[in-house]
Design a protein around this nucleic acid. Structure first.
Length: 696
DNA sequence: GTCACAGAAATTTTT
DNA sequence: TTTCTGTGAC
């Protein structure tokens, strides 16, 4: 490297210099964490304290110490986070870092299972089911056991069954205990439910299917099972680093412990105050208990915030100080001044929308790009009104979270065809395809699948089956299509061509099924485009299951948002790890935030509080929290209500905020008299209380 | 058994 | 607005 000719004048130490002093670029605590020699390390990193930076530098430091890149495993929460971190490492120490293994827990489990699964009884050509598929398979088990007797009392739905199952796997809490705590009415079915789970597990095994939970479960099983395999996998890495540790669950903690059993070199970064994935089995106890699970843990706390102005930190600190159990830390910054966060009371949702839009335009006129602003909310549907208004005003926005492209029925239909080609035993996909065809309903579909099973799911089995007369035409059409698709084609773009062939059959079904097929057809075009970028059908299906695109924008040509100036609308969950110059938090109302479902449950309420903390700490310079005083509609049976400000914004928190009451001019497009204090619509809705009609 | 239709229900957060 | 469920015709 020293042979590279120097450019004159020579610049200060370049990133490719091996002797770069990383320590000098960090504060004292960050440096201590980044250069920590070995053993268990827990970094408690408050929001905006340079968590990513510290972890990045730690990887760089390990590389500088001579640890081979491929013996470092970096586990992150999203693929984005891992890519970002690895590219930052590369900038620090050069391309040698490209060999560092990085990814999510699930994608790492996936990789290991493809590689080592065969020796543990999982053939490497399995297909991954996403949550929806897993629920559908659960439905097949549920129906085949005939446990759900329609006449009797209600039995848990497939979603509930899957939720309990997944929770059991991820938290290792016994099934009975979960049901007792969350669904006491179903306690009498524990035995039947357990039988369904046994059947579900069996079905997965015989159909060569793997669900999300299995990716972790099998990883752990491989580690703890046979000695040689376990040691071989654990022996792949000398150092394991984990980001967002507060969002890991019991199963993941066990995996880590088994991965590091030989060397104990486990570094985790997290913030207990930002633990927001309990519904997925994550437990912030994990981070609280880390020092107990890993004796001789060194703890480093990062408190200096580089993101927000002090008034925003003050409010956030006060908010989170109410939390029952936590690692105490107080964020502070050297940044001076800054405006207090606004607490904005508005009359109702339209006014809230109006305030947000006008304030955004105001900031924009002052020179703030749209991409430096975001609007956050508790749940995806809460931005509906705002989205309409933004569209009307032609303000470009990008919505994160909420409805996903891949969950659309027509997209799943196409994927089902591909999956059957990839894995002829994929029962869920067979059922889905068969039910699309004219003349085939539930029982014919089941009959056909039995026929397939009898022929051991042979790729040609389908064409050999003799269907009932009414389904003959559909059977021939599908059989011909499948036959044509069976030709092996591994030239680039093969997957896209397969989709295009599938569409010769499917597009007609789609047009028949939906009144306005145009937008759905264009979704399929888009899917075809994405598929074109993958080397193989298997790679495409795995990628789409493990790393679904976050928003429809992600699906575009791949051009990053940096070029276009776009406002971000996001759920608080999806906003994790991000930051903006100005943040609007809407619907800060009891029942919305916290959500009414969590009121009454201590733990869930604590999680909601942490969620609000996450939301507030996304803001660098401007934070506005809005709450409508009234809301209409039928949420939770209430038709018209006087809203209460979110309980988290108690007196002391409010005291650190700036009260703002926007004064709007009369709306130009509503030439009505000033409000008489009566809302006719609300009164009318009140007559049909409990109707549950769902707004617009 | 399939299918069309109507009416009802349902909306947290994600790998 | 979309998705699910029940009913009855064929």
């Amino acid at each position: 490297m020293s042979d590279v000719p120097r450019i004159y004048p020579s610049r200060p130490v370049e990133s490719t210099e091996p002797a770069r002093d990383l320590r000098a670029e960090l504060n004292a605590e960050q440096a201590a964490a980044a250069t920590f020699p070995s053993g268990p390390l827990l970094i408690i990193a408050g929001a905006g304290t340079g968590k990513t930076r510290t972890l990045t530098y730690r990887v760089a430091d390990l590389l500088q110490r001579g640890i081979p890149a491929e013996r470092i495993l970096l586990l992150t929460f999203t693929r984005r986070a891992s890519q970002e971190m690895l590219s930052r490492v590369e900038r620090l120490v050069g391309s040698a870092s490209r060999q560092v293994h990085g990814g999510t827990f699930h994608s790492t489990g996936h990789r290991l299972l493809r590689r080592f699964g065969a020796s543990a009884g999982v053939p490497s050509d399995f297909t991954i089911m996403d949550q929806g598929d897993a629920e559908d398979l659960m439905q097949l088990s549920r129906a085949s056991l005939g446990v759900a007797d329609a006449k009797k009392k209600r039995f848990p739905k497939k979603e509930t069954l899957h939720y309990i199952y997944s929770r059991h796997i991820n938290t290792e809490i016994p099934i009975e205990e979960i049901i007792g705590a969350e669904y006491p009415p179903f306690l009498e079915y524990v035995e039947a439910i357990t039988r369904i789970y046994a059947d579900y597990t069996e079905r997965k095994a015989t159909r060569n299917l793997v669900d999300y939970d299995d990716l972790l479960l099998f990883w752990l099983a491989m580690l703890e099972g046979s000695d040689s395999l376990g040691s071989r996998i654990a022996g792949l890495y000398d150092h394991v680093l984990v980001d967002e540790y507060q969002d890991t669950n019991t199963l993941q903690a066990r995996i880590l412990s088994a991965m590091c059993r030989g060397h104990g070199n486990l570094s985790v970064v997290g913030d207990d105050a930002q633990s927001i994935y309990a519904f997925r089995g994550a437990s912030f106890r994990n981070i609280l208990d880390f020092p107990r699970s890993f004796p001789d843990t060194t703890i480093v706390t990062l408190e200096e915030n580089y993101r927000s102005v002090q008034p925003i930190l003050d409010v956030s600190n006060t908010l989170i100080s109410r939390a029952a159990e936590r690692y105490t830390k107080n964020l502070w910054t050297k940044r001076e001044g800054g405006e207090k966060p606004w607490l904005v009371s508005v009359q109702d949702e339209p006014q809230q929308t109006r305030f947000v839009v006008e304030r955004i335009l105001e900031l924009h006129e002052q020179g703030m790009p749209l991409r430096e602003m975001s609007v956050l909310f508790r749940a995806g549907y809460m931005s509906a009104d705002l989205e309409i208004e933004l569209t009307n005003r032609k303000i470009p926005f990008d919505k994160w979270g909420g409805l996903k492209f891949l969950e659309a029925a027509h997209v799943k239909d196409i994927l089902a065809f591909l999956r059957v080609l990839e894995n002829p035993r994929d029962e869920v996909s067979w059922y889905r395809i068969l039910m699309l065809l004219p003349g085939i309903g539930d029982s014919t579909a089941r009959g056909l699948m039995e026929g397939l099973q009898e022929q051991a799911w042979h790729p040609d089995a389908f064409q050999r089956i003799v269907p009932p007369a009414r389904a003959r035409e559909a059977h021939t059409a599908l059989g011909t299509l499948l036959h044509r698709l069976r030709t092996t084609d591994d030239t680039p773009g093969a997957v896209a061509r397969e989709i295009s062939r599938i569409r010769t059959l499917y597009d007609d079904i789609l047009k028949e099924k939906y009144d306005h097929p145009d937008s759905r057809l264009s979704d399929l075009e888009q899917l075809q485009g994405i598929a074109g970028g993958y080397p193989s059908r298997g790679a495409f299906l795995s990628a789409i299951a493990l790393e679904p695109p976050q928003s429809t924008q992600d699906l575009g040509s791949g051009a990053e948002d940096d070029e276009t100036d776009t406002l971000v609308l996001s759920t608080v969950h999806s906003a994790k790890g991000k930051e903006w110059d100005a943040v609007f938090l809407i619907w800060a109302v009891d029942g919305y935030f916290p959500m009414s479902r969590s009121i009454g449950n201590e733990e869930e309420l604590e999680e909601e509080r942490r969620l609000m903390y996450v939301a507030m700490t996304r803001a660098r310079n401007h934070l506005a929290v809005t709450y409508p005083l009234h809301s209409y509609g039928s949420r939770r049976g209430a038709d018209y209500s006087i809203d209460q400000l979110s309980r988290f914004l108690d007196r002391e928190v409010r005291g650190q905020m700036e009260r703002v009451v926007p004064q709007f001019d009369a709306l130009p497009d509503t030439p009505a008299e000033p409000s008489a204090g009566v809302d006719l619509r609300a009164v009318m809705r009140g007559r049909f209380r409990g109707g549950g009609t769902g707004g617009r």
